[in-house]
Structure formats: C-alpha cells, structure tokens
C-alpha cells in the first residue's frame, strides 16, 4: 500500500487542529468584512438619494412638467425636459452604436475569426473601451465643431456617447457569438444553408438574449455620462424635442445645474430627485436586460 499524504496508512477523520480552525475563522472574518466595506458606500448613496429625492418623484408633475420659469427658490416643476433629452440622446446613440457594434462583432467572429485583422481590431476596441468620456467629448467637439463647423447639439452628444457605447456593444456581442457552439453552425451548413443565413437564422437567435442584454447594459452606462453633455450641448430648463438644437436638457446636466444651490433650497432638493430618477432608469434597464435573459432561458425548458 502506498503512503498517504499524512505519511501513515491510518485514516484520520478527527476535526482539524486548533491553528487551522483559527486561520479558517480569520479568513471568514476577512471576506465578510470586505463584503460589508464594499456594500457600505453603495447603501449609503442609495439611502441619501432615496431619502432626499423620493418625496419629489411621487408627484405626477415631477414626470410631466419642465423647469421652465422655475427658480431654485421655488418649489414645483419636474424633469420632463431632462427625461426627453436623456431618452432622445440615448436612442440616437443606440441607433448608431448598435448596428455598427453588432455587425462589426459578426464580422470579427464569423468571418475574420483568428485572423490578424480580427485580433488587431479586438485589441483596439479594448483600448477604446477604456477612454474617458471627456476625451470622447473633446474628440467630437474637435471634429464636428472645430473642423466641420457645426454648432453644438444633442446629436453631437449622441456621437460622443457612441464612442463610449460601441466598444461595450461590440465586445459583449463578440463574447456572445463565441458562446454559440460551432456544432450548431455545422448542423446548419449540413442542411445546405448558406453561411449568411446560418448567421442570421441560427447563430444570432441563439445568442440573442446575450446580445440584447449587452446592448441594454451599454445603454444604461452611457445614460449617466456627463462630460459630453457639458461640452457638446447647453442645458436648458425648457422642453426641447429637436436633437439639432444647441440647447437640450438631460438628467446628468439637470443634476449638475442645481448642485451649487444652498442646502435648504427646493432647487437643491430637485438635484436628489433627478439623481434618484436616473438611478431608477438604470435599474429599470438592468431589470429589462435580466428579463430578456430569463425569457429566452424559459423557452429552453
């Protein structure tokens, strides 16, 4: 019989020694403490935002009125103007970033997989995903306003956000397409289905929930970006639907416009209300993403 790791052939089944029990409890304390430390700031942010902003968002005027003509000293008004801006800017951004990102990922995974070009592009996209939003904003400013001579506009903001959203969409779509087993592609080819149809009818439907989750999460991320809004469009308190106008409100800039008010002012309160609304929107988008993922999972059963 060969020697066991304890050096004898005898099997010991007693509880571990005292030193090991202490190490084990120490480790348990450390990991618990780290978790608590990570949660504390998050919980405190949520607490202050909800406690200071919740009473505002329960009124219908908050959702249906703008801040037009309302001074920081006055109560009332709402964030409809900022909501319009945020949704419009996000939709324009998505309309540009989603097709480019998804089609780009399809090219990289389905057509250029393993090739040098694909690896170079993936690497470049990884770098791009790390650029600060202010750099994206200044790049668009330099290109649109300095070089082309356009004015500031919500569209310019959307374009800056595209630079931030594109890498997220592209990378997440790439990962989801990679997860589709090659056996499914082969099964489709073996039925005499051409490659483009295989991608369209087999690969994308299989990866659909993952791709759309990536898109929604990417959208949630860029909705809170502030730097492009500050640089590329002016904040206005009125309602504006035109994305080409140089004045358009959005939630981050609404928060920014009220942040230097004195603490007791209603205008200061509205900052918290807007912050809470933004968090709610991001939360809803995350729930939608989870919903999409779950819906397609249920279908499998």
């Amino acid at each position: 019989m060969s020697a066991s790791i304890t050096g004898t052939d005898k099997v010991t089944l007693t509880r571990p020694s005292g030193a090991r029990t202490i190490k084990n409890s120490l480790a348990a304390v450390y990991v618990t403490l780290a978790t608590v430390l990570a949660i504390v700031p998050l919980a405190s942010i949520l607490y202050s935002v909800i406690s200071k902003g919740f009473h505002l968002i329960t009124s219908s005027s908050w959702w249906l009125q703008s801040q037009r003509g309302i001074t920081p000293r006055r109560e009332g008004g709402g964030l409809y103007h900022a909501l319009v801006g945020t949704v419009e800017i996000a939709l324009i951004c998505a309309a540009i970033a989603v097709p480019i990102g998804v089609l780009g990922a399809i090219y990289l995974i389905e057509y250029a997989r393993g090739k040098k070009v694909a690896r170079a592009v993936s690497f470049a996209v990884d770098i791009l995903s790390g650029i600060p939003s202010i750099v994206a904003a200044l790049f668009i400013y330099a290109l649109f306003i300095t070089v082309f001579g356009f004015g500031r506009s919500a569209i310019a903001v959307s374009c800056a956000l595209v630079l931030l959203m594109l890498p997220t969409v592209l990378r997440s779509t790439e990962e989801m397409l990679k997860l589709v087993p090659d056996t499914l592609r082969e099964a489709s080819y073996a039925l005499g289905v051409p490659k483009w149809k295989t991608i369209l009818k087999v690969v994308i439907p299989t990866a659909f929930s993952g791709i759309s989750t990536g898109i929604v999460l990417g959208l949630a991320r860029v909705m809170g970006e502030t730097a492009p809004l500050l640089i590329l469009v002016a904040y206005g308190q009125g309602i504006n639907f035109s994305p080409t106008s140089d004045v358009m409100a959005a939630l981050p800039t609404m928060i920014n416009s009220g942040r230097d008010q004195a603490q007791q002012m209603p205008g200061y309160e509205r900052v918290w209300g807007a912050a809470l609304t933004l968090i709610l929107i991001v939360m809803v988008l995350n729930l939608i993403a989870r919903g999409i993922a779950r819906m397609s999972k249920l279908k499998e059963k």
């Binding site: 087993p181 056996t183 499914l184 099964a187 039925l191 299989t206």
Partner: peptide, 19 residues
Amino acid sequence: VAVRRVVGMVFQRPNPFPS
C-alpha cells in the same frame, strides 16, 4: 452549399437549434 443539400449529416453530439 448545394452539395450539402444533397448529402446530409448527423453529428456526434445531438445539436438541435436551441432557439
């Protein structure tokens, strides 16, 4: 593609389309 319409194939692991 035309060849594969005439010569079909069944694979080692069952691979129905999950979607």
